[in-house]
Design a protein around this nucleic acid. Structure first.
Lengths: 100, 100
DNA sequence: TCGACATTCAGCGATCCTGCTGAATATCGT
DNA sequence: ACGATATTCAGCAGGATCGCTGAATGTCGA
């Protein structure tokens, strides 16, 4: 068993994995990434057929998980991807790929 | 945007990410992995304080996602980890880590 | 200041998920 | 065959999640 991880980090795992468990949220990350790493909320919402209010909530989940951050620019909000956080998933996965 | 992926693969993403979204299921994978890659259902269930029936269902979710497979050996079922499937997650993540 | 725009907040019904309990199935040892 | 063991199946209640709609907030241009 791997060494005990901190409570904070466990919660982070929880948030990140849960965030990634929804296809729309994974698509958001992809869309933002392939748009150069940042996109306004409206641009992101336009990718989906959902009501934008629905997308708003997905954005909040992603931000709470630390996978996105946002910045206000005038009347629009620019969301930026936070790839550092995806490293958490990578760290978790790496257990299974390294041969001891 | 990455090239169109097959329907089957999209469903696989869905299954794998959803399976990983629950802490208990991530722990199952860890437990099995650090036990050498295989474990009986009972051994896995004993790791948790849940009723074993609850663990059974988690095992089914993991198996449906292709992350575990099982084999009967007498009256017990041996679950084996299927690390190949975790590569799917790795593939998805790799988009964000390769600099084009 | 007024109206248009960009976005979030609040709350609703439908559905899904989790953990539980009780019953069923299958195998082993005697 | 019988009881003990190992595990799954079936169904239920509580809670979370999703997508929707309607209203609110904040900002820009005239």
């Amino acid at each position: 068993m791997p060494k005990q991880e901190s409570k904070g980090k466990l919660d982070a795992y929880e948030a990140v994995f849960s965030a990634l468990s929804h296809a729309a949220r994974r698509r958001v990350l992809m869309a933002v990434y392939f748009n150069g790493g940042s996109m306004t909320a409206g641009e992101i919402a336009s990718v989906f057929s959902h009501a934008w209010q629905t997308t708003t909530r997905h954005l909040q989940v992603l931000e709470a998980a630390g996978l996105l951050s946002h910045e206000r620019q005038g009347r629009m909000r620019i969301y930026r991807i936070e790839p550092k956080r995806l490293k958490l998933v990578n760290d978790w996965l790496s257990h299974f790929f390294k041969k001891p």
